[in-house]
């Protein structure tokens, strides 16, 4: 009958649509928190970070058909976020450096001493060259492997490994210096 063919065509189409919707919801559910954290790190401002995550997901939805592999979804989203962030700077050249850094700190149930040491750590982390801190943050927040970071930053694996090594090494050196100085002062 004439309607039966139309019906089957519709049936074929619907799962694809639903599939797309489903994978979008999965992407949101699984990765929004990590993306938000990473976004906070690169924006240094929670409001802008939230906007950036929104932009990222909108862009992701528009090109969700390009996502072939669920396993690479997280790295894909991080790449989009980095692009969107770059676009943000193309659009307007605002300086967000003035924004309070301790917005990043999780201030729940922290003693003053802990808060102090956390602030110290943050200061050290930010004193690292961005080329060193960037792979480290991706490894820590994104949980990416060396290969994935290399792909995200368009670097080769050896460079990424070297930078990861130097980032941790410098951080440890800075912290031991700090504690040594404190001991001396104290």
């Amino acid at each position: 009958m004439w309607w039966s063919t139309a019906n089957t065509a519709e049936k074929k189409q619907r799962p694809e649509k639903e599939q797309r919707q489903h994978s979008y919801m999965q992407l949101v559910h699984l990765y929004h928190a990590d993306l938000y954290r990473y976004s906070c790190w690169i924006c240094k401002n929670t409001d802008i970070a939230e906007d950036l995550v929104q932009d990222t997901y909108l862009r992701a939805w528009k090109s969700i058909d390009l996502l072939q592999n669920e396993a690479s979804a997280k790295a894909w989203l991080f790449t989009i976020l980095r692009h969107e962030n770059a676009r943000r700077f193309e659009r307007k050249q605002f300086q967000y450096q003035e924004v309070e850094q301790d917005l990043l700190l999780d201030e729940h149930q922290v003693s003053p001493e802990q808060l102090y040491s956390q602030q110290q750590l943050l200061k050290q982390l930010e004193s690292l060259e961005p080329e060193y801190s960037e792979p480290l943050i991706l490894q820590l927040i994104g949980g990416f492997s060396g290969d994935e970071i290399a792909q995200l930053l368009s670097l080769n694996l050896n460079t990424v490994n070297t930078r990861l090594f130097r980032a941790r090494k410098q951080l440890r050196d800075l912290l031991t210096d700090e504690s040594a100085r404190e001991r001396k002062n104290g």
Binding site: H32, D106, H108, L121
Partner: peptide, 12 residues
């Protein structure tokens, strides 16, 4: 782990 905690603002 410390760094991770540091960079984990509460997600809205």
């Amino acid at each position: 782990q410390q760094i991770r905690q540091l960079l984990s603002p509460p997600v809205p």
